[in-house]
Every structure is written in structure tokens, then in C-alpha cells.
Design a binder for these strands. Structure first.
Lengths: 146, 146
DNA sequence: GTTTTTAAGACAAATTTTATCCTAATTATA
DNA sequence: TATAATTAGGATAAAATTTGTCTTAAAAAC
């Protein structure tokens, strides 16, 4: 029940991009800085591009930039860009995977946990990760609103 | 980010045992009833035994029974009996896996999500799954205490 | 047209998951 | 005490997934 290394890489890569403050970076630079294998990083950036999280430019002055501000990109989007929809157990996504019954008694638990996970991942945006801030809605540190 | 099929099997198997209301069951019976491959089921029952969740008896009248009441066995224990400690990302468990820094900005997120998951899984006991009840502490259905 | 970059798909290695098989140990009972 | 029924544990194997690499093409700058 872990994220894959690829997902971890993807978060690092896009976080690096977010840190460039609007400037672009090429795969080689991202790969070097974040210590992810170059060709693997290339594949990851392609996935992030397909998911609409980054803009790609080909050619000599090409590279990648964020497609939105760091405030508008969530961990959930990054994870799902790499791994597809979160499901915890196969039965949450694939209706035909519970061969024996329409759904067993445990099924609602997986759905509940999936929803929990989705909400939590959605609450973290790139800028919060960069600034080490708690996610929206969290007020456990005792800070109060202005 | 899914539980393995083995874990799913394990939950089915122990749930079947819980349904036997104190009576024992042999691997063959569990395997047949829950449609999990016989030798694989045998391995799973061994893991549940090592984790102290079930009692095993060898020999002619042998088999498995629960080692506690269904109220006292949580989903968390079953998952961890099969998969080991929950971690979401390798860095949550293995301190040496973040090569570059002591821990990155994302690390606390994984810890938080791990904790969330652990709490949720702990809140579900076998009897709640059998009776399709919400976990302890949940009162979203509007029922009130007597 | 040459160089630098991304795009995409095929391929390959490594690891994990999902099993199976075999031998031993234990227990009931004929 | 021999036999049958069961679990215990380790070795092995097959399948699937993860983690990469390689090659060719397309695009853009100069």
C-alpha cells in the first residue's frame, strides 16, 4: 500500500519546476538536480504533460514549465497523473472484480478510505509543500485567521 | 497505492473464521468457501497465526479459530499481519531512503497520511464488518446513543 | 541543415506478487 | 503403533508490475 518510486520522482520533479518560479527547465537539469534517472525522468515529465500539469516546449530553447501556479496544483493530481485513479483495493474501481457478490461487507470501507485519501491529497498544493505549510482547512497549529 | 490481493484474501479468510462463531475451520474449507487458492490460503493462515490473530491446531481434528473475539480484531492488524507496517512511502519507515536530505518537505505529508490510514483501519473490527456497522467514533448516520 | 529539445513506443532488467511443491512435525484414532 | 489428517516452513516458479533504457521521430532555434 505504497506510492511507487515513479510517483515520488514525479513529485520531486514538479516541485523542482515550481521552485524555478516561472522559468523553464529541461529534463537533464531536472534529472540531475533531483537525482532521478534521466530517461525515466523524461517519461515522467511526459505523463505530467499529458495530465496538463506542465507545459512542454520542444527545440533548442525548450523544456518544461508549470501549466498553473503552484497554488493550483495538488498532490492528488500528481499522484493520479502517474498512477491513475486512487483505489486502495481493486474492487473500488473495477466493478467486476468482486466475482462472488455485487459487493462484500468490506467494500464500503475501501471506498471510505479512498475518499479520505483523495481529500487529503487534494488539500496539499505545491506552494504549501514548498513553504512547508499545513493544508487548507487545517488549524491544528493554533494560528488564527486575521 | 493498493492493498495486495493477498491482504484482500486474508481479510476474507479471517472474516469467514469470525463467521463460524467459535468453531474451527481447516484451510481446505476456508479456501473453498472464500475462493482463494488452497496453498496460498495456507500461507496466509500461517501469517495470521504468526501475528497472533488466529489459533492453529495440527492433526486430525485440527484447523484454525480466532484467537480473540471479532470485536477485538481490527482491519489494521490483518493488513499489517500480511504487508507489515503501513508506510505509504518508503521514507516513512526507512530513514535511510531519503538520500539527499534528512527529510524533504513532502515527508510530513506521508507521515500524516499514514497516521490517518492507521487510525481508520484500526477503527474497523471484524464484528463491525460482519454486521455492516460504521466504525467506532462515527456517528454520521444520525443514530444516537441509548 | 545542424543542434537541441520533447514525444512515443518498443524493449529489457529488476523486483514484487501470486502462487505451488515438498518435506517435516503434530495430533487423533483405528 | 501405524495411518490419516492436518499445520509449519522453506524452496521454487510463474506472472505481473515496476523501473528503467533505447531508438526513431517531430519540433524549434539559430
Amino acid at each position: 500500500m505504497q506510492i511507487t518510486r515513479e510517483t515520488d520522482y514525479a513529485i520531486r520533479c514538479i516541485l523542482y519546476l515550481a521552485g524555478k518560479d516561472g522559468n523553464s527547465a529541461v529534463v537533464g537539469e531536472i534529472s540531475r538536480d533531483q537525482a532521478v534517472p534521466r530517461t525515466f525522468a523524461a517519461k515522467i515529465m511526459q505523463k505530467l504533460h499529458k495530465a496538463g500539469l506542465v507545459v512542454s516546449t520542444r527545440g533548442v530553447k525548450g523544456g518544461y514549465t508549470l501549466n498553473r501556479t503552484p497554488e493550483e496544483i495538488t498532490l492528488l493530481e500528481i499522484v493520479e497523473a502517474i498512477e491513475g485513479p486512487i483505489s486502495i483495493n481493486i474492487c473500488v474501481i473495477d466493478k467486476n472484480s468482486c466475482e462472488r457478490q455485487p459487493h462484500c461487507n468490506v467494500h464500503p470501507v475501501w471506498v471510505e478510505i479512498r475518499d479520505l485519501l483523495v481529500e487529503k491529497l487534494r488539500s496539499y498544493t505545491l506552494d504549501k509543500l514548498i513553504n512547508n505549510n499545513p493544508p487548507s482547512g487545517d488549524n491544528t497549529t493554533g494560528r488564527r485567521r486575521a
